[in-house]
Each structure stands twice: as C-alpha cells, then as structure tokens.
Design a protein around this nucleic acid. Structure first.
Lengths: 333, 333
DNA sequence: TCTGGCACTCTAAAGAGGAGAGTGCCAATC
DNA sequence: GATTGGCACTCTCCTCTTTAGAGTGCCAGA
C-alpha cells in the first residue's frame, strides 16, 4: 500500500488520492477501504496531505520505512551493466575514469552524479626531481608510491647548475625513498628549523608538495556532473532553492561532509531529505556506495536527486557503478 | 537619452516609460518631448516596447550603439584595483591563479566569470622520465619547455629494469630535447611504423602525452565560476532557459568557440545577445579581454551575464583583471 | 472487514472588473 | 520649430468571484 503510493508519487510527483491508488495498485480494493488505510498510515507519520482535500504525499519517515523494509531492488538490466563496464573500460587516466563514472551515474539516472577522488592510505615518497627551467626558476616534480605526480615551479635565491640540482634531488631521494610522506614532511620541517640549509627553498617546495599530496589523499575533493538534471523536477523548480542547492555544490564542503560519512558506513547508504542535516538538501536524497580497490574502501560515489527518486532503480545502478569503478581502478594500478 | 534609458533599464530590469525618464534623466524635459524622442529611437531600432502601453526596452542594436559610441567607462575605484592585485598575488600554482581570477570576476561583478587556460605557442620537448612502479607498470613523465608536466602509467609487455628505463628516457631525451613537440610527435610516429622498436609501448605513451600537451595548448579548456549569480536575474529566471544555459556551460564547446574568437580581436570584446550566434546565449552578453604574458596573448578572460549588465562598470573590471592576471602569470615564469 | 453514498472542504482554473502606467496625437505655447 | 499639456485609448496586472474537480471523513449497510 505505502509502496504503491510511493511508487506512484515517484513517477508523477503529485499527491495521490485513494481513487487513483484503487485503480493502479491492482489490490482490488475500493477507494473507501484505501482511505481507511491511508488514514492509518497518516497516523503512523508515513504520509501526509498538503491540505484537506489533496491526496497524500509520503513523508521522510515514509520513505525511510519504504527504503528500509519494503523496497524490492530491481536487478539491473543486463544490458546496462555491460554498458557501464564498457564505458569504464576505456583506457584513460584515473581522473578521466572518475569523470566517466559521474557521467554515467547522472546520465543513466537522470539525476546528479558525484564521485570522490580515491584516497590512498599512506602515500610513500618515491622520487623528487629538480629540472632547471631558466636562470633562477626550477621545476620540481614529486612522485609518490601511488604514481601520483605533483609539480611546481620554484624560484631559487641564486642560479643553480644542473649538477647541483641533480645532487639535491639525489640527496632528498636517497634520504626519503620508501618513507611515508607524512614523515618526510615532518623531517624536512625539523631539519629546516635546525640548520638553515642552502637548499631551503627546495626543501620548502618539497614540503609544500608533500602537503598537497597528503591533502588530496584526505578526500578533499569530489567530481560532480548532471546538476542540470535536477532542474527538471518541479519540487526543486523554485529559483531560490535551486540557487542555494547549486551554491552548496560549488561550496563542496557540506557535500563532502556527507560523503565522508558514507565512507565509513558499509555498502549502500541513503540520506533522505532532512536526514542529511543540511537545510539546502531538504528536498533531496542522496544514494551512495563506497568503492573499493583490493578490498579497501578508497572513495564514495553516488547520486543526488529529489526525495521522490525511483530508489529501486537508482540503487542497483549506484551499486554496480561502484563495483565496476573499483575494478577499473584496480586495472589501472 | 538612449544612455539614460539603458542605464535605468540595467538597474531595474523593467521597461522604462517617458515619465520616469523625465524625472530621472536630469534633462529637464517634459514626458511628451521624451515620447517624441523615444518614438524616433524606436524607428532607428534602438528601443522597442514589449506591448503598446509598456515602456521601452533597449534592443540589441541599442546596446551595440550604446557600447560603441556613448559608453563612458568608469575608472576602476582605486581600492578595487589593489584588491584584485592582492588576490592574484598569492603564491600558488598557475591553475590556482586562474581560479582566483574567475572567482574575482564573478565575485566583483556578480555575474559568471570565465578564464581560458593559457596556451603556449610552440611547446618544446624538454625531458621524459620513466620510473618503475611495480612489475610491468611504468610511470611516464613528460616535461615541456613551459614547465608543464604530463604523467601517465604505462603497462609494458615485459618487466623492465630501472637501468633499461633510464636508458630509454636518456635515449628519447637526447634525441628530442629542444625540438618542438609537434615534430617529436611526427618523428615518433614515423619511427614506430618503420622499425617496430622494443620501446614501442613507451614511445606510444610519449606520443600520447605529446598529443595531450598539444591539445591543451590549443586552448581546449576554460574555467568558470559564479554561474549561480545568473539565477538572480528575472529575465533568465525561466527554468528551461536556465537549464539550456547551464548545459551550454558544461558542454563548453559553444563557449569555447566564442572565447576563441576573442583571442584574435584586439582588446576588450563584447558580444551582445544574439550577436554571439548561439541561441542559448540570446539573453546574455559576454565581455572579454585577452590576457598577455610578455606581450603575447596567451588566453582570454571575461564575464557572462544578462544583456542588461552594467557595461560601464564591468568593462574596467574585466580589463584590469586581464592585465593583472597577465602580470601574475609572468611572475610565475 | 469492506463498500457505496453523501456532505463537506479546499485548490486551481477561468472570468470580470478596475487601477495604473504608458502611448500617440493634437492644439497651444515659447 | 521645438516643447508642452491635455486627452482618449490600450495594455497589463492585480484582485475578487465563481465554478469544477478531486479528495476526504464518516456512516450505514452488506
């Protein structure tokens, strides 16, 4: 009953009345009976009517109950699974892969897709390289165990010969190869305070770069796509609301907090409406799944849409994408 | 007269009538006189009324005339100039710099800001480096004259020793250092067809990376910010229109074409409404300025907003930002 | 326990009327 | 001849009213 109501509401976005339900739900009950049941559901707080003579609309509690207990997840159409795999199999960089993943999520579900950058547990220093560019400009390149590369231009106090630079990079590389980046950072910091080494400038840069890698690994960012899909839903069509929502997407902070919560939870996580705790997302739900490489969770992906999204359809898509993205990332390794 | 009308319309966004104009424009003329003048302007195609008894609204031609001949650009408040400089002076990567620039543009003008990535005329091969990651995975790093760094993971057919990899990178580096990247690409292509060298895999990668650098240098991308600012204008408040606009922003292609046109033009360029030739931008104007490093144009930046934006205020801001960005980028060099 | 019937309520759509803003034109004025 | 005040006219937008329709709650009967 609740299920039928929710499904109907998800499709139409309109309050649904006893009559419609009687016709659609294949339950062979008269509208009057249904009215009684609806009345009960209203007392339980699962549905509510916007005003006396409108139909009923599911509440957040209603959705929660629906999702937790009576949701029958549709198996993914076999075609779709293969399609996702195909799209994710293309031989590109990890970043492109993540972008395909969001693109797929938003494309298939017609909602907004979101993927966090994969984090690596303990990035290890691997190599640092200094290349002379011109006079006092030096290009510094830092490579970590994960094959991540950072680069930056340094201005040195005096001109350095290629030999000197080579020496510097050899020195640092020898000293730190295999050490955890966090340690490298600390050691450099200490050493710089003790002895004002001639390589200060470069060590400073190396530290900055280490910081940057570390920061990126603490899940500092996500990729999003298909935001415009959300403009299609009347319940979000209020410009003011839409603007706040998009601002939140750009701000990233709130969304990131939410996504972070999803990393810890096992498997699919669903935030319905105000459950997220962020007012801007009141009318929205978020369905997420962590993705793993080698059995270890490295990120989260999911979709954001109106509360009345078709959960039974979205969930398997998110789930499959998470698995396939994990697999694809592993191949990249 | 036209000027007064346009300025008033820019502020209020409402059709403006003879009465209002008489009061505001400090011209000391009666509404009736003004009506006569407006009638003339209408015949010239500079204004038009949405319906018989509404005020007049400037047409695209009106704006064009306004911008071309009677616009008096306000000098930038001295504070603003310094503020922009301060924001752009922060010591960060080139990419962050561009992001501050768009952020500034959109923040100050309350419109959407856009900046293309700077292109470099003839990138020159500088160095390629292959680092072993694990068994048959190799990290390839390509450095060009501009200090641009590309990296990618290669799967080799068999395990290569660090020595071998070193040799390979030395070989390629010696062969190509100082050559233009486009040439490198072609040479590699030719050589790969002639002799199926053992380093095929790596050469292929080197070529891919060269392609990527070349592509990026043909101005393939831009950064945007403040899109949500556009939601504040009633004339764009139609959801359908807004959606198309945002889709166009995400698509990037149309916007890129426009921006490309602006690189070639000297100085500030303004597209008003349909002048852009893209329907989605019909209600919008774009004000752009190329930015230069060492006297050479390397990119474009600007703002996108409704046709009724305050050109006299926006233009100096765009202009100043372009100059300051150029200067800041030069310091980076 | 389910159902049909009935009175009641509330919204959304459609129509009517009036206020207000603006126009065009004309004859009078400086 | 440029400018002005006056006046009739035409729109839109807002408000008010009315009405149709959908849905409810409740009750008596199967």
């Amino acid at each position: 009953m609740l299920k039928a109501l929710i499904e109907r509401y998800a499709r139409e976005g309109q309050p649904v009345g006893s009559r419609t339900l009687a016709r659609e739900a294949g339950l062979d009950l008269s509208p009057a009976t249904i009215r009684n049941v609806l009345s009960d559901l209203e007392e339980l707080g699962f549905v509510q009517s916007p005003h006396t003579s409108a139909g009923r609309v599911p509440t957040v509690q209603g959705y929660r109950f629906f999702v937790d207990t009576l949701l029958s997840v549709q198996p993914l159409e076999s075609g779709a699974f293969e399609e996702i795999r195909a799209q994710l199999d293309i031989d590109t960089t990890a970043k492109d892969l993540l972008e395909s993943a969001t693109g797929l999520l938003s494309g298939i579900t017609q909602l907004a897709g979101v993927v966090t950058l994969p984090k690596h547990e303990h990035p290890v220093f691997r190599r640092v390289e200094f290349l002379p560019l011109s006079e006092r400009r030096v290009l510094a390149i830092l490579v970590t165990s994960e094959g991540e590369v950072q680069n930056r231009i340094v201005h040195t106090e005096r001109e350095c010969s290629p030999g000197e630079l080579q020496q510097a990079s050899n020195y640092l590389s020898e000293l730190f190869t295999g050490k955890e980046l966090a340690d490298v950072r600390n050691t450099l910091l200490r050493e710089m305070q003790e002895a004002r080494s001639t390589m200060n400038q470069m060590m400073l840069t190396a530290m900055h770069m280490a910081d940057q890698v570390l920061e990126r690994n603490s899940n500092e960012d996500f990729i999003m796509s298909g935001q415009t899909n959300l403009m299609g839903f009347q319940e979000l069509c209020d410009i003011e609301r839409l603007r706040k929502l998009f601002d939140a997407f750009n701000q990233k902070r709130e969304i990131l907090n939410l996504l972070d919560q999803c990393v810890h939870g096992e498997g699919i996580q669903i935030f319905i409406g105000e459950e997220s705790g962020y007012q801007t997302l009141d009318e929205c739900s978020m369905v997420t799944a962590p993705y793993q490489v080698d059995g270890e969770v490295v990120g989260v992906l999911g979709v954001i849409g109106p509360t009345r999204m078709a959960y039974e359809r979205v969930i398997p898509i998110v789930d499959a994408t998470a698995r396939l993205l994990g697999a694809a990332l592993k191949q990249k390794e």
